[in-house]
Design a protein around this nucleic acid. Structure first.
Lengths: 340, 340
DNA sequence: TTGAAAGCGTTACCAA
DNA sequence: TTGGTAACGCTTTCAA
């Protein structure tokens, strides 16, 4: 039943020539090795006829490269990561690389284990949103000569290529925007994490407040996936115990979704009673009534930079500097944060 | 720099024993092959000490299996597929399989090419949302003994395992629900496609109408991704030219999103002026005001069934029947389709 | 109870 | 201009 695969050897036998010749032709070294045109043609025709494709596994073993890149994100079902994944996929397939993905849930042990599993498979590179405490593992990877690019957040202790966005600047801008719109009691809802992206957003928020008379209240909820719906209740309590708030900034979109749920429940009028801004723009922010102001990350550019940096390491000449890329975001002001 | 990898041979040399012995112990055949306990222990300790992991590539080559499953969906950045991906990932990693994903954009040529690329890599199985015209390629796969499970839609001409949902029944139920709520002029917005899932949803809609006096208007928009925002304008025109509509059924969630955008633009009151139901429930439907009624697919069960069927083929005894699994959906009635 | 060696499908060096 | 062959790292049969 299972039609056995033809190998390079079968071709050589069928054509009465050597494996070497076939291999050279397959790899386009015909000219270089000065193989006659008729021979080349004969082989190519035969290959096309029987539809032969070289075994990638064997090539990997021989070459020590697998043409596989691992995309390790926090949660592939999160819209932000899924969109990045889609773009990364496109770009890497175009360059002959396949993508294996995995989700860490921001769990260090899980991430370590996953990296271990993949080293065994000779994967050529890793694109990672690092979990806390992953420093040593990434260092090891680097020492072993594996290509690594971090994104979304980075690790100050590790000298590694990364692609991130201007978290602090954008958070500051959005906060100032709220203040410009008259907010005097701002809430900041974020996840309880020491990771750079969240720290920077908080820092931006606080920076904007410096020297102003605006009051601020901060809520840190523990890390969770949106499916858990954990934060909605916490945010509800937060909003209830801070009735003075006239503006709230969510540090990421799923917190905003949960926050909106809370605001709806409380019957708060946006933007009349409370103004809303969120990090990480999302299709729905536009659809929601009123549309929600949000900071849009340049998804396309992020994916582009990630692949560029990855390919540079993969195909590069060896000693290339680590690339540290910081991209700008865009604050999309919508009705949720402006007075009519 | 790059610390060279230790192989089974290095271990054998270091311990002054043969490769075979090491291999047997590694594969847990110590007992079976009656290798002495002290030898076993010695080897295991050494392996643990140097942190050796066998090369998966070499194993693949030798065994002809790669422990890789390809997940081929329409678009990995689509929430539905991303959620499935997340669950599939979890279940397959648990069973020692890795997942490579790719998006077809519902493009036949692209899908064919992708399948070609993966056959070369000895992947063990394919989980596929088939594009139109993929029948022959899938048949070939099956003939070659590769494990295949289709989902979301199936191909009547091909005898292949699949996991789908009760599209027709649910569409019928949702339509009847709209009729029960007093709708007399129903619109049905779908994509122009001959694929089973869309045909079945349309069939369900029409079935419900049979024998009733309810009028219906159908809009078929061409296939597109939500990023293109193509349908919003088309739906707007459709709604404008059918002012009599008092209910509309979207055959999939991204059409509903685009449709909601159109309804907002038109200033239509939901549900007072027009009632709305959509296929494929979504987090956002709950958040939208008013919350949108939708048919929820059992994502978890779908992923579960997919992996179960896949593993059965992969690890099974060979001649197992194809599994054709049809799961039930759940109509979540919300404010968008009921009178107060 | 352990070891030698063939073989999986390639690539690439060295010969011819 | 072409061919022989070692090597990549592993599993497994057969022999010792």
């Amino acid at each position: 039943m299972a039609k056995k695969k033809t190998s390079i050897k079968d071709i050589a036998e069928a054509l009465g020539i050597s494996i070497t010749t076939v291999s050279f032709i397959l790899n386009g070294k015909g000219r270089e090795k000065r193989i006659s045109d008729e021979m080349t043609k004969k082989v190519q025709d035969y290959i096309k006829k029987i539809g032969y494709k070289p075994s990638h596994i064997a090539q990997s073993l021989r070459l020590g490269k697998s043409k596989v890149i691992v995309l390790m994100v926090e949660d592939i079902s999160n819209q932000f990561f899924a969109s990045i994944a889609r773009l990364i996929e496109e770009k890497s397939y175009k360059n002959g690389y396949k993508i294996i993905y995995c989700s860490t849930d921001n769990d260090t042990d899980k991430a370590k284990e996953l990296i271990g599993t993949f080293k065994v498979r000779n994967v050529d590179g890793f694109i990672i949103t690092p979990t806390p405490g992953l420093e040593n593992v990434v260092k090891e990877l680097l020492e072993e000569g594996v290509a690594v690019v971090l994104f979304d957040r980075w690790m100050p202790e590790v000298d590694c290529s990364y692609v991130i966005v201007e978290n602090k600047t954008s958070a500051e801008e959005a906060t100032r925007h709220l203040m410009d719109q008259g907010c005097r009691n701002l809430g900041f809802v974020t996840v309880d994490s020491n990771q750079t992206q969240m720290m920077d957003r908080l820092a931006g928020f606080q920076e904007a407040l410096k020297g102003s008379k605006v009051h601020s209240s901060i809520l840190k909820v523990k890390f969770h996936t949106i499916a858990e719906q954990y934060a909605s209740q916490r945010i509800l309590e937060f909003l209830t115990s801070h009735p003075e708030l006239d503006g709230v900034f969510f540090s990421t979109n799923y917190l905003a979704f949960e926050g909106l749920q809370a605001l709806i429940k409380l019957g708060k009028k946006i933007p009349q009673q409370i103004k809303v801004v969120s990090f990480d723009d999302h299709y729905f922010f536009n659809l929601f009534q009123p549309p929600i102001s949000a900071i849009e990350q340049p998804i396309e550019e992020i994916a582009e930079s990630l692949m560029e940096s990855m390919l540079k390491q993969l195909e590069g000449t060896g000693q290339n500097e680590n690339q540290k890329i910081v991209l700008s975001n865009k604050l999309n002001v919508r009705e949720s944060s402006v007075l009519h």
